Amino acid sequence: MAKKSLIQKEKKRQKLEQKYHLIRRSSKKKIRSPLSLSEKTKMQEKLQSLPRNSAPTRLHRRCFLTGRPRANYRDFGLSGHILREMVYACLLPGATRSSW
């Protein structure tokens, strides 16, 4: 189980990313369009004035049940060992155990 504080910090980052998503996207679009150099620097300053944690690259996928930050499967939102336990318990429809 991950520390509660890290899980809460990740949730806070997700909220910030959703809050500033449109502002960040529009300012990036304006920077890419042909503008004068002064307008481009103003848009870059506006982009830099946004909180760091509102950037989507700072988000990290975590396990839905345990909060584990590593070995996550995107399809299920679970970490590897939890996914394996759930497959063995037949709790995930469509997932089969490998046996050879």
Rank of each mutant, 00 (worst) to 15 (best):
Ile82Met: 07
Leu6Ser: 07
Pro51Gly: 12
Lys29Glu: 15
Leu91Gly: 06
Ala71Gln: 14
Ile31Glu: 03
Asn72Gln: 12
Pro51Trp: 14
Ser5Asn: 09
Arg68Glu: 04
Glu85Ala: 11
Gly67Met: 03
Ser36Pro: 07
Arg13His: 04
Arg62Ser: 11
Glu17Lys: 13
Leu83Phe: 05
Cys63Asp: 02
Gln18Tyr: 07
Trp100Tyr: 11
His60Thr: 14
Ser27Tyr: 02
Lys4Cys: 00
Gln18Asn: 12
His60Gln: 12
Asn72Phe: 01
Gly77Gln: 01
Cys90Gly: 10
Lys28Cys: 07
Ser98Leu: 14
Leu37Gly: 03
Arg68Tyr: 06
Ser27Phe: 00
Ala71Ile: 05
Arg25Leu: 13
Pro93Thr: 10
Ala95Val: 15
Lys4Ser: 02
Leu47Gln: 00
Met43Ser: 08
Ser54Val: 06
Ser5Lys: 09
Ala95Asn: 10
Arg32Ser: 15
Lys3Gln: 06
Tyr20Met: 05
Ile82Asn: 02
Arg25Met: 13
Leu47Asn: 02
His81Glu: 15
Met43Pro: 01
Arg61Asp: 11
Ala55Met: 04
Pro93Ser: 06
Ser54Asn: 11
Ser79Arg: 03
Leu16Ala: 08
Ser79Cys: 15
Phe76Trp: 08
Lys30Arg: 12
Arg97His: 05
Leu37Glu: 14
Leu16Thr: 05
Leu78Ser: 00
Leu78Ile: 05
Lys46Val: 02
Lys3Thr: 06
Ser38Val: 12
Phe64Asp: 07
Leu22Trp: 09
